[in-house]
Nucleic acid binder design. Structure first.
Length: 429
DNA sequence: CGATAATGGT
């Protein structure tokens, strides 16, 4: 019996024991919980049995169906979702705006924007008015497809129909414009939204600051931060984290630390992500020893994770301090931090790069012994570096070993390197 | 009364 079934197994018992009968809302909460966990079998089972389990007092309603439909859409079962929509109509539960919004998002996510747009028309025909959620979804997926003009048209339509814009609309437009290269337009739109008092949190600004950093426009990014203060918008950890990471990637530790100071002077507490960014920045800047001191301090504060150490390992390797890099897995274990596959992948890649493929293979078997599963990256690293005059049997043996340990092979590597050898092998034997 | 839909940073 799996955990989720176990958690809900009390439902099978007579409710007399507690003296409280579950009603539709109780069931809907459980159905939605199951859907959110992706356990659609359980969700469906609950819905099919709720009438009997409740002694005939509870029947699925539109909320039940909307939850189910959303669950199926999110787990790739758009066909089942469509069947459920038909089913609810058959038992006289009218699909409402939420039902359509959920289906429209589902079809868009599945890459069927055409069908999503058809559903928009259909809901209007049935007398339902698409709300901002529906418009936001459609615009988001048009932008994802790169259809900036289409999204603009939908936005105009939304304004014409006087559907209120919300903070979601703002962030979707900001991100959509940015990701399609319209940074100036995004900035213009953000200013306009500020004028209309549509912006209540740092969300949209964070998106724009992120894109400005990614396009190396740090002055503009910093200016935007300054403007947030002017407009009374409170920057959050994400705002600072984005700027700090941007500066670190740029190799400008000084600016990163300046932003850090600004953040600490405000009431915002730095999080682990921010420290990891700084550690990465210090390494990139050649200041690995400073990075190491920072990690030591953070470790004493209990403020480190796997990524902290992985970043430092990368830093040591990039500056040639290999012995220090290889000592880190033990150190992190002492600090109670579990090494990840990425920890060993970094070291394995280094060994391969310097022709020590045998040692790399040994490290891979060691990580298995230490309870860390190799992944498709480990697989790719080993096979793309494997000795050219290594025998086919050896390659296949390594492949079999890794697959047996639960590794899902990297598709391209398998097709190009391992699979040809397998055929060769079967041809000769 | 209570339960359901869309957005961000290593």
């Amino acid at each position: 019996m799996n955990l989720i079934t176990r958690l809900f197994s009390w439902i099978e018992w007579p409710a007399f024991y507690s003296g409280i009968w579950p009603n539709v809302v109780t069931f809907n909460m459980m159905v939605d919980g199951a859907c959110k966990m992706g356990d659609m079998d359980l969700a469906l089972k609950l819905v099919r049995k709720m009438e009997i389990m409740s002694g005939g007092s509870s029947k699925p309603n539109s909320v039940t169906y909307n939850s189910l439909i959303d669950g199926f859409c999110k787990t790739g079962g758009i066909t089942v979702a469509e069947e459920l929509r038909n089913e609810m109509m058959k038992i006289d539960i009218e699909p409402n705006v939420r039902t359509y919004a959920t289906m429209i998002e589902g079809y868009s996510r599945a890459g069927c924007l055409e069908e999503a747009l058809r559903l928009c028309d259909e809901m209007v025909e049935r007398g339902l008015l698409p709300n901002s959620v529906v418009y936001n979804s459609i615009m988001h997926w048009l932008y994802m497809e790169g259809d900036v003009d289409g999204a603009s048209l939908v936005f105009t339509d939304m304004s014409d129909k006087q559907i209120p814009l919300d903070k979601f609309t703002c962030s979707i437009l900001t991100r959509g414009l940015c990701r399609n290269g319209y940074i100036t337009e995004a900035l213009k739109f953000l200013n306009q939204s500020l004028e209309n008092n549509l912006i209540e949190d740092a969300f949209s600004h964070n998106i724009l600051i992120n894109f400005l950093c990614k396009s190396n426009k740090f002055a503009a990014a910093r200016q935007l931060l300054a403007r947030m203060y002017l407009r009374g918008l409170v920057p959050d950890v994400v705002t600072f984290g984005t700027l700090i990471d941007g500066h670190c990637k740029e190799g400008n530790i000084e600016s990163a630390v300046q932003v850090y100071d600004t953040m600490v002077k405000g009431e915002e507490k730095p999080n682990l992500l921010i420290y990891n960014s700084i550690i990465n920045g210090l390494c990139k800047d050649g200041l690995v020893d400073v990075a190491r001191s920072l990690v030591d301090v953070l470790q004493r504060m209990g403020f480190v994770d796997t990524i902290t150490y992985n970043t430092l390992i990368n830093g040591y390797i990039n500056c040639g301090k290999f012995d220090k890099a290889f000592k880190l897995p033990t150190l992190m274990q002492n600090a109670g931090i579990f090494a990840s596959s990425a920890t060993y992948n970094t070291l394995i890649k280094f060994l391969c790069k310097f022709g020590c493929v045998q040692e790399a293979k040994e490290l891979m078997t060691m990580m298995v012994l230490w309870g860390v599963l190799p992944d498709s990256i480990t697989y790719r690293t080993l096979f793309t570096n494997i000795d050219k005059n290594c025998s086919a049997e050896e390659v296949i043996e390594l492949h079999d070993y890794m697959v047996l340990k639960g590794v899902v092979p990297d598709k391209l590597t398998y097709e190009n390197i391992v699979s040809p050898l397998l055929q060769e092998e079967s041809a000769t034997s």
